[in-house]
Each structure stands twice: as structure tokens, then as C-alpha cells.
């Protein structure tokens, strides 16, 4: 069944296996949305219950958060360009843009670690209050996902170097791309409902 479609579809869709893997990954992402929604709900319910620890408006810095957001948005863009290059058949373009995505992801992670260390030094740690527990679990889960994505991307870059563009490697790149864009979607909601609302209310 895959034979007659090979010309019309990009390489990652060219095999039945590849198509099933991509659909399966979308199902995983749908489940991830449910996971993050429970964390958002927990955070929203515990909002404001800071007990004796600092209030979020005292600690959140608009500058840092905007830089992190722009880094992640840009990395999503470069990841999209990587997929675009892959579909053009350019292995070099794909690897360059993917490596750039990786660098941006690492700098995002650096900012997030700096931010967490700063908050803990100001007396807002995981165990300080219900609010900060909700905050660290939500943003921390996102940070863990970014960390996993970085490790995953490094592994895929190594495979691309070794094997070039095949139906298997393009499918893997496409899926890690979906994952990376998805993390950006989650971050948009963290940026809005955690940081922006936290600074306003």
C-alpha cells in the first residue's frame, strides 16, 4: 500500500510503519496534553496560597521570562526550518538547523535553572508553600521534557550523521520535531497563565 504513495508523500510518510509511528506519536501528544492539564489545574487551584513564602509577583522577572519565551519560540522556528530542509532533501541544512535548535534548547534550560536557583535562594522552593509546589511541578515537568528532547535530538543527530536521510531517520526527525513544537505550545500556556497572570494578579 505504501508503494503507490511514495511520490506524493514526504519520505517520513513513505512506509506504513512510518505513518503508524507518526499517528501514534500524535496520540502520545494528546495524552501529554491531558497530563499537563492536570498540572495546570493544580497550579490554578493553589494560586495565591503562598503561606509565608514570597508572592509570585515579587519574584517573577518579566525580562527573564520574555527572553526564555523568545528563545523557545525561535527554537521552534529553527526546528520547523530543519523539517523544511529535510523535505527539500538537504541533510546538511537539516543538521545545521537541528543543531541550532539544540543550542537554543540548551540556553532555555540554562535560563530555567538560573531562575529556579534564584527563586530557591529567595525562599521559594518546592516545599515552601502549596503555590510554589504547584509552580515547580508544572514548570519543572516542562523543563524535564525539554531536557529529554535535547538528549533525544542529540541521539538523532548522531544517527543522521551515520545513516543519512532514509525513511526511518526522516520519520524520527519528524517525530522529534512534533515533540519540540509541542513543548513550545505548553510553554506558551505556562508563559501566559503562570508568569503573565502571576505578575498581574
Amino acid at each position: 500500500m505504501s508503494e503507490n504513495k511514495t511520490d506524493a508523500l514526504p519520505l517520513e510518510y513513505s512506509t506504513h510503519q512510518g505513518q503508524m509511528n507518526i499517528v501514534g506519536f500524535w496520540i502520545f501528544l494528546a495524552a501529554e496534553i491531558a497530563l499537563f492539564s492536570t498540572l495546570f489545574a493544580t497550579y490554578a487551584v493553589l494560586f495565591g496560597r503562598t503561606a509565608d513564602s514570597p508572592a509570585p509577583a515579587e519574584l517573577f522577572e518579566a525580562g527573564t521570562v520574555l527572553i526564555m519565551t523568545f528563545i523557545l519560540l525561535t527554537s521552534s522556528f529553527t526546528c520547523g526550518l530543519a523539517i523544511h530542509n529535510m523535505r527539500e532533501g538537504s541533510l546538511k541544512g537539516l543538521m545545521v538547523w537541528l543543531a541550532l535548535t539544540l543550542v537554543l534548547g540548551l540556553s532555555f534550560l540554562g535560563f530555567e535553572i538560573y531562575e529556579f536557583v534564584h527563586y530557591v535562594s529567595e525562599g521559594a522552593a518546592l516545599g515552601s508553600s502549596a503555590f510554589w509546589s504547584g509552580f515547580f511541578v508544572l514548570t519543572g515537568t516542562h523543563g524535564v521534557h525539554v531536557t529529554l528532547g535535547i538528549g533525544w535530538m542529540i541521539a538523532i543527530l548522531i544517527q543522521l550523521k551515520q545513516r543519512g536521510l532514509t525513511a526511518v531517520t526522516t520519520r524520527k526527525v519528524f517525530i522529534v520535531g512534533l515533540y519540540w513544537h509541542f513543548l513550545d505550545v505548553i510553554w506558551i500556556f505556562i508563559f501566559t497563565s503562570v508568569y503573565m497572570i502571576g505578575m498581574v494578579v
Binding site: Q19, A30, S37, F40
Partner: peptide, 21 residues
């Protein structure tokens, strides 16, 4: 690919997320 486009299940996931929150 061979199956339906994934936007419908993502739509369901976002509905579930909105209901949970």
C-alpha cells in the same frame, strides 16, 4: 498518512484539558 489527520484527536485533547482546568 493512511489514517485521518491528527487534528481531531488533538481537538479532543484540548477539550479534555479545558474541562479539567
Amino acid at each position: 498518512g493512511a489514517t485521518n489527520a491528527p487534528w481531531n484527536m488533538m481537538f479532543h485533547a484540548f477539550v479534555i484539558a479545558a474541562i479539567i482546568v
